[in-house]
């Protein structure tokens, strides 16, 4: 892993149009870096939930579960990429699945950059200053959405309106995927239950 690879996301987040263009056509985005960003984000959220200051930490320590964060970050990430890919393939998008994944991951960089220091600082603030904590965190969130928007536009070579429409459609598709997934699971459950009851019927009949 070269230093340049690591420096590139920092370039992307301040010069998104330029950066995402380079990512797509100069092949500067790396899958490994995308993975690193994701892992760092998951760790950041875990640390934030566990170690942010008492005044801003409203989590019930009895129910904190680090494995859950994978569920809340990795799963939506994969769903988003799959959903987006499914929609844009039908709507003349130029992005490939790998490009979509790297773009989305790179767009998450501001969250990683902001969460660590705010978590640290939150241990030294009072109630009145806690609004800065929330302000910075929501600022990072907005920054992420802006980057995602620009990234999607560049990757698929869309107009602004089409990007917004496809992004909204992606959310709908995500819901459909979740629905189908649950359907499959419950069907499998039913089948297993059916086989089980047949099995019991047989053994109790001698």
């Amino acid at each position: 892993m070269k230093v340049e690879w690591l420096r590139f996301p920092l370039h992307v987040i301040v010069r998104p149009f330029d950066g995402f263009w380079d990512m797509k056509y100069e092949k500067k985005g790396k899958g490994l870096v995308a993975l690193l960003i994701l892992v760092l984000l998951i760790v950041a959220v875990i640390i934030q939930k566990q170690f942010s200051g008492f005044l801003v930490n409203f989590n019930d320590p009895r129910y904190l579960n680090s494995i859950d964060e994978f569920k809340y970050i990795l799963l939506p990430f994969i769903l988003w990429c799959l959903g987006n890919w499914s929609v844009t393939t039908l709507l003349d998008g130029e992005g490939r699945l790998k490009e979509i994944m790297i773009t989305t991951a790179y767009a998450l960089t501001p969250l990683v950059l902001v969460y660590y220091p705010t978590t640290l600082v939150s241990n030294f603030i009072t109630n009145e200053e806690s609004s800065f904590f929330y302000l910075l965190n929501s600022f990072a969130g907005l920054w992420f959405i802006w980057l995602l928007f620009v990234g999607m536009m560049t990757v698929h070579q869309y107009t602004a309106t089409k990007t917004i429409v496809t992004m909204l459609l992606t959310i709908v598709v995500m819901a459909i995927i979740v629905f189908l997934g649950m359907l499959v699971f419950s069907l499998i459950q039913q089948i297993i239950g059916f086989i089980y009851s047949i099995y019991y019927e047989l053994i109790f009949r001698n």
Partner: peptide, 18 residues
């Protein structure tokens, strides 16, 4: 205050302590 989960008063105490 931390044991009683009283954030408002904790903030006051912390401000003075800091």
């Amino acid at each position: 205050f931390k044991l009683g989960l009283d954030r408002k008063d904790y903030s006051v105490a912390y401000k003075r302590y800091r």
